[in-house]
Lab assay of single mutants.
Amino acid sequence: RLYEREDHKGLMMELSEDCPSIQDRFHLSEIRSLHVLEGCWVLYELPNYRGRQYLLRPQEYRRCQDWGAMDAKAGSLRRV
């Protein structure tokens, strides 16, 4: 689950498959919190699986710093 605000607030989007462009699919370029329910995912800073990568394991991420990012920029997401 992807959230537009910290602490799992605001608009929530659910994802169960790879997403090459978060902007195209959800009209957002920033994700401020996440909740990974199962499996491991890689969040990429840019669309089409480019830029900085962040490995996400099943857990709650209340803010972008929790997954190691300096800002909430999110371009794509892929399951590993």
Rank of each mutant, 00 (worst) to 15 (best):
E30K: 11
G10P: 00
C19F: 00
G75A: 05
N48V: 01
N48G: 13
C64T: 10
R5S: 11
H35G: 02
R63L: 04
S76D: 03
E38C: 09
R5W: 10
D66I: 04
S16P: 02
D71S: 14
D66Q: 06
S29P: 10
Q53H: 07
S33Y: 07
A72V: 05
Y44Q: 05
G75E: 00
P20H: 15
S16K: 11
P47W: 02
M13N: 09
S76Y: 01
I22V: 11
Q65E: 13
G39P: 02
L46T: 02
E38A: 13
S29K: 14
D66T: 01
L11V: 13
D24K: 09
L11Q: 12
R5T: 03
S21K: 06
N48Q: 14
M12F: 08
L55V: 12
R62E: 05
D7V: 01
D24C: 08
P20D: 09
A74G: 06
Q23G: 12
M12Y: 13
N48E: 08
Y3D: 02
R32K: 14
G68M: 04
E14N: 07
R57K: 11
M70S: 13
Q59I: 11
L37E: 06
R63M: 08
F26V: 06
L34R: 00
L2V: 04
D7G: 10
S16A: 14
C40E: 15
Y44A: 04
P58F: 01
E30T: 10
F26I: 05
E30F: 09
S21F: 04
L56R: 02
R63F: 05
D18K: 01
M12T: 06
H27N: 15
S29I: 07
Y49T: 01
E30V: 08
D66S: 08
L15P: 00
G10H: 02
Y49C: 01
Y44F: 13
S29C: 09
C40K: 10
L37I: 13
C64L: 02
E4V: 08
E6V: 06
L2W: 02
R62N: 04
M70V: 14
L37S: 07
H35W: 07
D71T: 15
S29D: 13
S33Q: 00
E6L: 01
K73L: 10
Y54G: 00
I31D: 02
Y49R: 01
H35F: 08
Q23F: 12
V36G: 03
E17K: 07
W67G: 00
K9D: 09
Y3W: 08
D18E: 04
L55I: 15
L11I: 12
M13G: 13
N48W: 11
L77I: 15
F26S: 04
H35V: 15
R57Q: 13
L34V: 13
E38V: 09
S33F: 00
R62H: 15
D66H: 06
L56H: 00
A74R: 00
Q59M: 14
L34M: 15
P58N: 09
I31P: 00
L37M: 11
R52C: 05
H35S: 13
Q65W: 08
L46G: 09
L34C: 11
Q23M: 14
R57V: 11
E17I: 06
G51V: 01
L11P: 14
Y61I: 02
L15R: 02
C40A: 14
E60D: 09
S16H: 14
S33G: 02
E14W: 06
D24L: 08
H27L: 10
R5E: 10
E60I: 10
E4C: 08
Y49G: 00
I22S: 00
N48M: 12
C19T: 06
M13D: 04
S33P: 02
R25C: 08
R63Q: 12
I31R: 03
Q23P: 12
R63P: 00
W67E: 00
D71Y: 11
A69N: 08
R32Y: 07
V80I: 08
A74I: 15
A69V: 02
I22C: 05
D24V: 07
G75Q: 03
A72R: 03
L11N: 15
A72G: 12
C40D: 15
Q59W: 06
V80F: 12
Q53G: 12
G68R: 03
L37K: 11
G68D: 04
L43S: 02
L11R: 14
L43P: 00
E6C: 06
L15E: 01
L55Q: 13
N48I: 09
R57W: 10
R32F: 04
Q59V: 09
R1L: 13
R5Q: 15
D66G: 05
S16C: 12
Y3C: 04
Y49S: 01
D66V: 03
W67K: 02
R32T: 03
L34I: 15
R1K: 13
P20T: 07
R57P: 15
R50V: 12
L46M: 10
A72E: 06
G10V: 02
M13L: 13
E6S: 06
S29M: 07
G51S: 00
P47L: 05
P58C: 08
D7Q: 08
R63E: 09
G75P: 02
L43D: 01
R25G: 05
R57F: 13
R50S: 14
G75N: 03
Q53A: 12
E6N: 07
R5H: 15
F26L: 08
E14R: 07
S33E: 02
E4S: 14
R32A: 08
Y61P: 00
L15D: 03
C64M: 07
A69P: 00
S21T: 06
C40V: 14
E6P: 07
M13Y: 12
E4N: 09
H27G: 15
Y49K: 01
S33I: 06
R52N: 14
L55Y: 15
L77S: 03
R25W: 11
G51P: 00
K73R: 15
G68A: 04
R52G: 07
H27V: 05
G10D: 03
